[in-house]
Every structure is written in structure tokens, then in C-alpha cells.
Amino acid sequence: MENSPRKGFWEAMNSLDRRIIFLILLVCVAVPLLLNVGAPIPPTPPVQLAYDAVESLEAGDVMMVSIDFDATSAPELMPMLHSALRHAFSKDVRVVMLGHIAIGLPLGHMALEEIAAEYDKEYGVDYVDLGYRPGYIAVMIAMGRDISDIFASDYQGTPLAELPVMTGVRSYNDIELLFGFEHGAVIDYWVRYTQARFGQRMTFGTTAVMAPDAYPYLQAGQIEGLVGGLKGAAEYENLIGHLGLGTRGMPAQQWAHLLVIGFIVLGNLGYFFTRRKG
């Protein structure tokens, strides 16, 4: 029995060169991406809650958008940002953008200009980009008192007093909702400082990595909604009825997931057979 071909096969599988795994994965992601098909994804409760939070805003309310990611997480967070901005602008909500990852802000700004143009919104009147100030905790705490303490001007140096969009917007008191886009620990600071100290309403779009960590905040009611990963982005796109890159990436996701599931099953079969016979 010891040298049966079946055992030999599984032993070979157990010591499979991982480069073969890499190659199969590459094919599984690249091919669906090139075929370019995607179908709407039904929403799950956390995404629905995030949507509802934005939906609860009225025309003229202020939504603060925080860009807390950089290019590395853009594939996941950009589609969400687009959807959230579309949602806000379609309801005539004022958008105030800022960010805690300096280098991500140009990305956020480009998205803001792009979506604002779709809805004929005017810079300074309907939306503004405050830009970046160093020291995220310091910035968050200062805004609880007076936004103009820390952001005397917008990203290109125009004083806030000259921007109609900032009329009556002085502190968190005047911001109906914070929508943060997070790829790291900044979300913890938003919750542990801004929410805990000022009771700010907030909802987040996060990378799929950060999402599980944000679930306790959601359950505790510290945050109102959660859009997690590319699937969350696809769900949000479905909710606002405007499909984009989130939905488009889902077929590749599907195949990659099935492949990894296959690998786990195969790995376990190999483990099972070689252990029993060995």
C-alpha cells in the first residue's frame, strides 16, 4: 500500500510548488476582468444602514467626507466614494471633504470634482475640499470646537468665510453626518475621539480588512452604517442605481473566492489521505 499511486498523488499535491497556485490565481482574476461582465449585487444590512444614514439627510444638510486612504486601497474605496458622493449630490446635500492621509487627498479631490460635474454642482457653493492638516487626533478634537480654528482656509487657501457652502458650519454641531473612507486606524480615532466626545453621527466605507474590526462599533451604535470592501461598494452602487467599478470587479472576485475555497478543500483532502495512509 505504501507506494500506491493515490498516496503518491496526494503527497505530490501536499508539496505542490506554490508558484503553480500563484499562476492559477492570476488567470482566475485576469480572465473575468478582461471579459468585463457584472450583475447588480443585493444589499446587506450594514450597507443598507449606511445608505439610510445618507438618505436621512435633507437638502442643505452637511455631510463631511473624510479621505483616509491612499492609492494602495483606491481599488476598493474609490467605487464607494463615487457612490456616496453621487448619493449626497443627488439629494442636494452639501459636501465638505477633508482627509487624514495627505497623499490620498488628491485622489479624493479628483473624485469630488468628477462627481460634482455630473450633478452640476459648484465648488464653494455646494461642496468644498478643506484639504489636509497634520496630526489627525489634534484635527479631530479641534473641529469639535471650531472648524476654522484648524482649517482657516480650504485646500487652495480661500478663507472659509468666503465660501458660501460653509455658511453656518462651525463645528460638529453643524455636520449632520460624517462619511469616512478608511483603510487603517483612522477609523478608530474618528470613533474613539469624535464620536465618543462629540456624539457625531458617522458612517464608514472601509476596506474588507478593516470591516470586521468595525462591526463592534456598528453593533454598539457608535457608527450608523458600514460599507465593507468591493462587495459593499457593489451593493451601494446597486442601492443608488448607478453601477460602477465595484460591480464590475465582482466576477473576478467570485472566481478568486471559488479558487481559494477549492484550494482549501484540496489541501484538506491531501492532508486527510496522506495522514490516514501514513
Partner: peptide
């Protein structure tokens, strides 16, 4: 859950290449 994030990054790079 995280698998999706990692695949998204690869999608991002492949999208750049293609």
C-alpha cells in the same frame, strides 16, 4: 472576509496593466 480586499488589490493592479 479579508480575501476580498486582497483580490481587489490585484484587480487594481491588473486593471492598471490592461
Amino acid at each position: 472576509y479579508t480575501l476580498m480586499a486582497r483580490i481587489s488589490l490585484l484587480i487594481g493592479r491588473l486593471y492598471f496593466l490592461f
